[in-house]
Amino acid sequence: MTREHGIALLILAALVLAIPSIVTDSYVMTLMIFSGINAIAAIGLCILMGSAGQVSLGQAGFYGIGAYASSVLSQSFGLPVPACMAGAAIVSALAAVILAVPSLRLKGHYLAVATLGFGEIVYIVLNEFGPGGPSGFGDIPPLSFAGVAITEPAHVAWTVWGFLLLVLVFSLNLLNARPGRALRALHGSETACSAMGLDIVRLKIKVFVLSAVYASIAGSLYAHYVTFISPSSFSFFHSVLLLMMVVLGGITTVWGGVIGAVIITLLPETLKSFEELDVLAYGLILTLSLLFLRRGIVPIVIDKFRTSERGHA
């Protein structure tokens, strides 16, 4: 991990500590919590796309598995929430392996469509066979740690963003070590990678599993926070949202996922004043940012910053 990343992490940690202590408005807290949850899933997708060059239009499937598996485990078996989240992550990881092994032979559009198909199948299965069917189910145990329930919005925000910080540190460590370098190399030249002895298929499967586990953690956090879930939260639309977050924020760095997640989560809220035009405004903003911020916000900002720094020196 480089110094810039360390500084950015410290600033983020300070913000995470400060905001819930200063702002008590529960609406702001809710937005902060949802941003954090989305960011965790977005980081996984960021690594998958930006580093390994793979696309997934089915992340909502893993997000849904994380939410449902963790909820069912805690509700039906009374297991502690952290154990349930771990269990859900394992289920998602298995699903990811099953999907990845045949999919990774596919490229570009075909891979995107295979993941899309997977996400939709998860959605349909949850709709038909999930507890409560299309209307979902409630009374999911809230987040808890060592038997102490975490329900205060500020505490939930700290927990979610705490998870996010851990995910960030883990990801940055990974990307700047042997496996992460291999993943970035894969994006550069697969031919050279195989000549260097890298097992490309295994690497791709592993990074796919990693992104699924992140999405699963995000889904579990979501379920235990809102304590009521239904399949509609895990539809294709959510996969698209995650993809939007990553593309908008910038796929070349995990920070792109974080920034993109915050923006995309806050956007519909700020558009509420448009009333029935909100979907239209939302679509327009996405279209325009794709047209004009093609490389993603974070890489563009970093470049601007570096150029101005050079200008001063």
Binding site: R181, R184, A185, H187, G188, S189, T191, A192, A195
Partner: peptide, 8 residues
Amino acid sequence: HLELFGEM
């Protein structure tokens, strides 16, 4: 034909 990892 060089196959370096250009962005690294």
